[in-house]
C-alpha cells in the first residue's frame, strides 16, 4: 500500500531523513518510535505534503501512485490521512462544517453527490458516540478552546468519518490522560481493518499497550535503525533508546 524508498528530506537546509525506507501493507499497524529529533514527525508530514520539507532523493508511492507528485488534497482524497499532533484552531468554522466539507470533497472525488443531510447527521451521531464526545462539539469552531484530549479525539473522529486507507497518527498520545488515551486508542483500534494501513508515530511505548502494533520501527538519526514486533517496543520501554543509538553507531 505505502512504500517509502531511501527517502532523504531536508528542512531549512538541514538533512532530517537520511535514507528512510518503509513498507506498510493493508491490514498492518506500524509504530514508528525513536528519540526526540530523530525525524519521526517529519515522515508523516512529508507523506501528507506539508510545505517546508524538501525531498532531495528517494520515492514515496501509495497504491502505485507517486505521492510526491500529488497535491496535498489529492493525497487525502487518495486515502492518506494525517492526524495531527497539534491540530490548529480555525475560529468561526464549525466542526461539523469542516467534517461535511471534507466528506463531500471525498465523495466528489469518487463521483458521488453531496451526502444528504439526514444521512450525514446519522453518521456523525454514531461516530461522536463512539468517541464519547458531546454533540455540542459539532457546533463549536474547529479545535477552538478544545483541551488537548478533545483535540486528539476530534482528530480520530475525522478518521472515523473519512475512513482513510492509510491512517497516519502523529504523537496522538501526547498530552492525554489515561482515560482520554483509552478512548483515543479504542477509536484507533476500531479503524483496524484488513484493507487499511495504520502508521503510528509515538515517543512512548504506553500507547502500544492499547494499540498493539504488528511492526515497530526505531528511527535514529533519520534512518530506521531497528525493526521488530511489539516486543521491541517493550524492550525500548525498559532499556530506553540509547542502546539502539549505540548499536547504530557501532
Amino acid at each position: 500500500m505505502l512504500e517509502v524508498k531511501d527517502l532523504h528530506v531536508t528542512v531549512e537546509g538541514k538533512e532530517i531523513l537520511k535514507g528512510l525506507s518503509l513498507t506498510v501493507k493493508a491490514g498492518e499497524v506500524h509504530a514508528i518510535m525513536g528519540p526526540n529529533g530523530a525525524g519521526k514527525s517529519t515522515l508523516s508530514a512529508v507523506i501528507a505534503g506539508k510545505e517546508g520539507y524538501e525531498v532531495t532523493s528517494g520515492t514515496i508511492t501509495f497504491e502505485g501512485q507517486d505521492v510526491l507528485e500529488m497535491e496535498i488534497e489529492e493525497r487525502a482524497l487518495a486515502g492518506m490521512l494525517l492526524g495531527f499532533q497539534y491540530p490548529v484552531e480555525i475560529p468561526g468554522v464549525k466542526n461539523i462544517y469542516l467534517l461535511k466539507a471534507a466528506l463531500n470533497a471525498q465523495r466528489a472525488a469518487n463521483g458521488q453527490a453531496d451526502i444528504p443531510a439526514p444521512e450525514f447527521m446519522k453518521l456523525i451521531k454514531s461516530k461522536i458516540a463512539e468517541m464519547k464526545m458531546d454533540a455540542s462539539f459539532l457546533q463549536r469552531a474547529v479545535n477552538e478552546g478544545f483541551s488537548g484530549g478533545e483535540k486528539k479525539r476530534n482528530e480520530i473522529l475525522q478518521m472515523l468519518v473519512l475512513q482513510p486507507k492509510l491512517a497516519m497518527l502523529d504523537e496522538i498520545d501526547s498530552g492525554l490522560d489515561i482515560d482520554a488515551m483509552r478512548i483515543v486508542a479504542d477509536g484507533v483500534n476500531s479503524l483496524r481493518a484488513a484493507d487499511r494501513g495504520i502508521l503510528l508515530v509515538t515517543h512512548y511505548q504506553r500507547l502500544l499497550d492499547y494499540i498493539i502494533p504488528d511492526h515497530v520501527h526505531v528511527l535514529v538519526d533519520g534512518r530506521i535503525a531497528k525493526s521488530g514486533d511489539k516486543e521491541l517496543a517493550k524492550e525500548l520501554e525498559s532499556r530506553g533508546y540509547d542502546w539502539v543509538v549505540e548499536e547504530t553507531a557501532a
Binding site: 506539508k50 488534497e73 494525517l82 468561526g92 469542516l98 466539507a101 471534507a102 472525488a109 473519512l162
Partner: peptide, 24 residues
C-alpha cells in the same frame, strides 16, 4: 497551518481559504 489542515482533509485550497475567511 490552517490551510494545510483543511487541505490534508481533502478540501481544495480555494475552498479552504473561503472556509477560513468566512469563519473569520
Amino acid at each position: 497551518d490552517q490551510l494545510f489542515y483543511c487541505q490534508s482533509r481533502g478540501i481544495s485550497e480555494e475552498d479552504a481559504v473561503s472556509m477560513i475567511v468566512n469563519g473569520f
